[in-house]
């Protein structure tokens, strides 16, 4: 299966801000944060179409999100808005600063055709089962 290794950046977006103020359980919020953006060349190498599900995996966890291509993202890097999806990929280690590293970690992205992205409720259920 095709796979790219990229450096993941997470950050705030307007859509995430708007969605957040409507509510965490709202469609708008979920749609705004459950996405990864790749450079078109990295995107193409995955051989998927716009909006298809991919599996993103780091040393600390993995998550299913939809994938988009974006000219803004340089090759070898990826972008995700802040939110529960992105946070499944980060380490809780703060290296004695209180601040976990939320930008610039290595992740592997691979196509996950046919797999369904979890909703926020499903993410919660997953946590409840812990």
């Amino acid at each position: 299966m095709n796979e790219v290794v990229v450096t993941l950046i997470s950050a705030r977006t307007i859509e995430q801000g708007i969605g957040l103020e409507i509510g965490k359980t709202s469609e708008q919020y979920q749609n705004s944060v459950s996405v990864i953006e790749l450079n078109p060349s990295d995107f193409e190498s995955l051989e998927i179409s716009e909006g298809e599900t991919v599996e993103v995996e780091s040393d600390y966890g993995s998550v299913l999100v939809k994938c988009r291509s974006s000219q803004d993202v340089p090759k070898g890097r990826a972008f995700m808005p802040y939110g529960p999806w992105a946070n499944k990929l980060f380490s809780s280690s703060t290296r004695c600063s209180g601040m976990p590293q939320l930008k610039g970690i290595k992740v592997r992205v691979k196509a996950a055709k046919g797999l369904k992205m979890p909703s926020i409720v499903e993410l919660i259920d997953e946590l409840r089962r812990l």
Binding site: Y60, G83, N87, P100, L130
Partner: peptide, 26 residues
């Protein structure tokens, strides 16, 4: 729960958690 890395969230699910907020959130 929405904004901490997963393994920190994990412990939050295991202790008595009290939340004061305006809206439903994770």
């Amino acid at each position: 729960v929405a904004h901490f890395p997963a393994s920190a969230v994990e412990h939050l699910t295991k202790i008595p958690l009290i939340t004061i907020d305006q809206k439903v959130n994770m």
